[in-house]
Design a protein around this nucleic acid. Structure first.
Lengths: 339, 339
DNA sequence: CCTCCTTGTGGAATCGATTACACGACCTCG
DNA sequence: CGAGGTCGTGTAATCGATTCCACAAGGAGG
């Protein structure tokens, strides 16, 4: 593969001049410029990004560490992150942590070794020493969706509290009084927050959230199934299950079906994180939709601001309730699914 | 960030010795080794992968260019690729081409500029000059799922012909005679092949595939909807629609629903590419399942073989039919969905 | 006409690693 | 006891770019 020296030789100039042309530095004569550009074209020369990065200490690459690529929510997030990054001249390396802190650390380390310019993380846990070190060492970082409390890193996320209140209002209006939740891992902020928001919303209606109605899940489908079976085995099973993410909702749906029961007649179901497939399930599932694309773009902008020396901003966007049929017919017309 | 020089100074040895310890070269004294390792630990030193890559001309990074991360099929592929690559000591940079040749070229170029060791591509088209140049220039490459005919690059893919025959047998046994297909882009091999396989399978039953029953889609949901509406407007609409991928099947489902019709009573539906959600749609969708994880792993192994100087092998794995309820009740017991 | 400045260019240092080569110390064997 | 190895180490070249600095040529101004 041709190097800058080959181009210099072909154009009859020094490597310095070639470099100047390539980085359009002002003081290059028109003559030299055209000769260099011609040489570049005939040789099919492309600058070696590795060498350039070594010298400039910039890779124009961002790292994105998420917990599960197979979750459509994170898939969409990854897509929007890549788009915005591309628009700003950056590439993205995605690391899939699979909800495992050790894998998360592996990716963070590997990305830092590669000298990415900045890191977008949706932490799977309360903060590994490695990640805290990275922050302390000055690695530009932004948290997306989830975050680690007490760490001075901008956070870009959705606030679901209003939507959860709406959801509870909707459920209450449908006559449901025994409401249960499948929570996410306590180590994640989203895992905790959604429980808190749910409990607070219930209190507004004078309803309680007993311990038996809080199932411990891990954001994966299988845990949703397991927890739901536990609920159904209770002497007094709940009338509604609210899953803190879409995959656990799917597991819940499985569990209900496996017993020959029906949604919403025997058990109503709602989920956090809306995804296109929820329109097509049987029945279509009522869910709280995050502005995923906007979150991804805002996160990239915040990170690039930080990288390029501008003050980065934390961003919180509202989530909204999308009512479908999984909690009962005749929904209060809060908001209807459009698609 | 500490460099190898700092470590050398701290340990009281030369950089060469540090490098030898790090790459566990045999001729280093035990004494020097322990001093270097101690220095590495106290400084928290990590080798700069950029500098190392420049010198060794290896990045231990693979590029993966796929057409749509939001498609669960490619999501799963990406995941298995990353897993296998990680097991073999490589990282993966994913480029999302969105079925657009220009974006595909953008990513290929960007990956080559970054000097990735090899490229995994699922081409969106018949082969851009850029990609052909890359092959000619000797960039290690492997095609996954789709490929470009006439190019000397190993291909890892699934053969769906047997499964398509099974599907047609299943449909025929259910009494369906008017079968239509929503095809993928003609520029992709998978787009063409699935039509050919379908037609051949029909011929075995003395059935024809008229032009009006071949709808042109682009692997996106919206095109599935559009094509299905066209089918339903036909004077003699088909009894079955076979979508060449999962997203177009979803669009088809939408189109049927929008007219107040039902699957499978009014129109039966089957899809290429099985995904977890198909179990939960209304009705569950009969689909042809590719061994996606195995494809991803095989592709990585082939690429790494090529990179490390071993002869790479093309791999073709069989796809299989998973019968659910979207083509009619009482399915012939060819194979039942398990989950 | 001589200085001073601007403009264009090249030489060489630099980024952080790897590695060929040289060299001194010590060992072994005839 | 000396020749020839082996072992451990350091010096320096190298990868492909960017960029500081020096310098030559030419123009402007006194």
């Amino acid at each position: 593969m041709a190097s800058i020296k080959d181009v210099a030789a072909e154009a009859g100039v020094s490597v310095a001049t070639v470099s100047r042309v390539l980085n359009d530095h002002p003081s290059v004569s028109a003559d030299a410029r055209t000769r260099v550009l011609a040489a570049v074209k005939t040789l099919g020369y492309r600058p070696n990004a590795v060498a350039r990065s070594l010298r400039t200490d910039q890779t124009h690459t961002l790292g994105l560490v998420i917990s599960d690529v197979l979750n459509p929510y994170f898939g969409e997030l990854a897509r929007s992150v890549e788009e915005e990054a591309r628009a700003l001249g950056y590439s993205v390396i995605i690391g899939n942590a699979d909800e495992r802190p050790d894998l998360q650390d592996h990716h963070v380390r590997s990305l830092i070794d590669r000298r990415i310019d900045g890191l977008l993380v949706s932490p799977t846990d309360g903060g590994s020493p490695l990640m805290l070190d990275a922050v302390r060492a000055g690695t530009p970082m932004v948290f997306v969706d989830r975050w680690i409390p007490g760490v001075a890193v901008p956070v870009v996320r959705a606030d679901g509290r209003a939507a959860v209140r709406e959801l509870v209002a909707h459920l209450h209006a449908l006559g449901h009084r025994r409401l249960a939740i499948i929570a996410g891992p306590a180590a994640t902020t989203t895992g905790q927050e959604r429980v808190v928001a749910f409990r607070e919303a219930l209190e507004a209606y004078g309803l309680e959230l007993p311990e038996t109605y809080i199932g411990q899940g891990d954001f994966q489908a299988e845990s949703g199934r397991r927890v739901t079976e536990g609920f159904l085995d209770l002497p007094e099973p709940p009338e509604v299950v609210f899953a803190a993410d879409n995959l656990m909702a799917l597991g819940a749906l499985d569990a209900v079906r496996a017993r020959g029961l029906r949604v919403p007649e025997d058990l109503a179901l709602a989920a956090f994180d809306d995804i296109p497939w929820f329109v097509h399930t049987d029945p279509p599932i009522t869910a709280i939709a995050q502005p995923t694309g906007e979150l991804g773009r805002a996160a990239v902008r915040a990170l690039v601001d930080r990288i390029e020396g501008r003050p980065p901003e934390s961003v919180t966007l509202p989530a909204r309730l999308v009512v479908r049929r999984s909690c009962g017919e005749n929904p209060t017309p809060v908001q209807r699914s459009t698609s």
